[in-house]
Amino acid sequence: MRVVVAEDLALLRDGLIRLLGAHGFDVVAAVDNGPDLVRALLEDPPDVAVVDVRLPPTHTDEGIRAALRAREEVDGLPVLVLSQYVERLYARELLADGRGGIGYLLKDRVSDVGDFIEAVRRVAGGGTALDPMVVAKLMDSRRRALPLDRLTPREREVLGHMAQGRSNAAIASAMVVTEKAVGKHTNNIFAKLGLQPSDDDNRRVLAVLAYLDGWGA
């Protein structure tokens, strides 16, 4: 699987290259700034890009903007964004096109190598991987907004797992219930959020977006 890595700190860049290389990824380009990243992504689109949010020249949210630009040109190009901090605002922007193939994780997560590699593969396959910290607030949310508040606590929990990119089978084992029960919950969630039965993956992304918006799709 071909990967482009964008990270301006040499120490972390080398670490990522080593980590991905050791797990069978082919790192085709490693860049340290936004313009180079856009060029690398557009010239020869990889299977997935692992991108740091803060890159030169602006040292702000260069990585997110470069990722969104590349996705405009190359439809649904899978991008996994890494950051020292996570914001729902950015998660929402990344997912806004509803096409999936997006990951948004704290840099800390690379220390859990298995989960991290899993997330890269999932994103490359068109799935999502949102950091648990972005998702955590769903559980304790006192938001009284519609239509999310129509979800039962159990359904919210399922939506939280869904946002992190877990499949129904993975959610079932995390919540210690049957996969069938999870399927029932996800269908209820889709119905309550007004999402028509179509491509299941796409509906999952839209449900996560609804959660990030706090008010519904």
């Binding site: 702000t60 949210d61 020292q84 901090y85 914001e87 607030k137 304790d140 938001r143 009284r144 907004a145």
Partner: peptide, 22 residues
């Protein structure tokens, strides 16, 4: 960090998204 990256408007939006009250 959002304030450094995006300025006041987005920083307040990011803050609002994280609050339990709409």
């Amino acid at each position: 960090p959002v304030l450094s990256d995006r300025g006041l408007a987005d920083a307040v939006r990011a803050l609002a998204l994280d609050l339990p009250v709409p």
